[in-house]
């Protein structure tokens, strides 16, 4: 029976394969194209006359003497100070993931083990907080942060990102903690553990899949954030994404497009590698709860 359900007609298989190929090329090709173009000069990648220039590197050959060049990477990392942005991103991402997992596991454990009614209202409040557009929160931060003189520095941004991330982390970890049987920590309590000991030595060791998933989403939020970092950091402390936006320039000052292209590749490559390794956790997280990061 099983085999008959999964037996497909020839036309279906052909149609299906063509559809998947088209879909995958739509979803992947733009990234491959950007990767390819980042090794060309601007006259090739942004050409008005002949798009085959981007393929054969016509102007790149004239300008640099080879059909591919790492000039854009070299310049953006050193002259454009992309190394500084990379370092800032690493600081922000690592801190946000660590702090938000620490706070999130504690809070979500309490929510999943308490039988009182207020946990329900807390979870609903978290859902409302999760739906707030980040830009509306930022408009509330700026004025107090200027008054307190803590605008523009990394620690402020880190704590803000941690807080913005909490509602989602709480919901995700809450649904993971719910799957861990209550009897496990109850027996630990009977044996004389305190709640914290039960949490630390009994529950946490079996919670690693959930923690990795929650960490992955915190990482993506911190790594990808533009709204908060662009408005709460000053130019020297920019992380990668606002830095790329700065390379694009404004109407008054023309930007350096090839810097932006190479930085986009530098910023996405590590992210894709991490997702490649943690794909399973990412998918389980997206489907676990009623919320999305």
């Amino acid at each position: 029976m099983e085999s008959q359900i999964n037996r497909y007609s020839k036309q279906l298989i052909i149609f299906n394969s063509i559809f998947i190929l088209i879909w995958l090329s739509i979803s992947i090709f733009p990234f491959l194209w950007t990767l390819w173009g980042s090794f060309k000069v601007k006259a090739d990648f942004f050409t008005r006359s002949d798009w085959t220039y981007a393929l054969n590197g016509f102007n790149t050959l004239i300008e640099t003497g080879a059909t591919a060049t790492v000039k854009a990477y070299f310049e953006s990392w050193i002259e454009g100070e992309f190394w500084r942005a990379t370092m800032n991103t690493m600081i922000v991402t690592v801190s946000v993931v660590t702090i938000s997992l620490f706070l999130g596991t504690l809070g979500a454990y309490a929510l999943s083990r308490s039988t009182f009614k207020y946990t329900f209202y807390i979870l609903i409040a978290a859902l409302i907080f999760r739906a707030m557009p980040h830009i509306t929160l930022v408009s509330g931060y700026l004025f107090p942060f200027f008054q307190l003189n803590i605008w523009g520095i990394l620690p402020t941004t880190i704590i803000v990102l941690v807080a913005i991330n909490q509602p989602f982390t709480l919901w995700l970890l809450y649904s993971f903690f719910k799957t861990v049987p209550k009897e496990l920590d109850e027996s630990a309590l009977i044996d004389g553990c305190s709640y914290f000991q039960a949490f630390r030595f009994i529950i946490m060791p079996v919670m690693w899949p959930g923690v990795v998933t929650a960490g992955l989403f915190s990482m993506m939020l911190a790594y990808n954030d533009f709204t908060v970092t662009a408005l709460l950091l000053n130019q020297e402390n920019y992380t990668m994404v606002p830095k790329i936006n700065a390379y694009l320039g404004t109407v008054e000052y023309g930007g350096n497009y090839m810097w932006a292209v190479s930085s986009v590749v530098s910023a996405t490559a590590p992210l894709f590698m991490i997702i490649w390794f943690f794909q399973r956790q990412l998918i389980s997280g997206l489907t676990a709860g009623a919320v999305k990061g």
């Binding site: 454990y109 929160l137 930022v138 509330g140 909490q166 709640y195």
Partner: peptide, 19 residues
């Protein structure tokens, strides 16, 4: 258990809306 995360959310999500 809930205090740290609750404080973070009130300070940086609740208060900004009021502000």
């Amino acid at each position: 258990f809930f205090f740290p995360t609750g404080l973070a959310m009130i300070l940086f999500i609740g208060l900004p809306i009021v502000s």
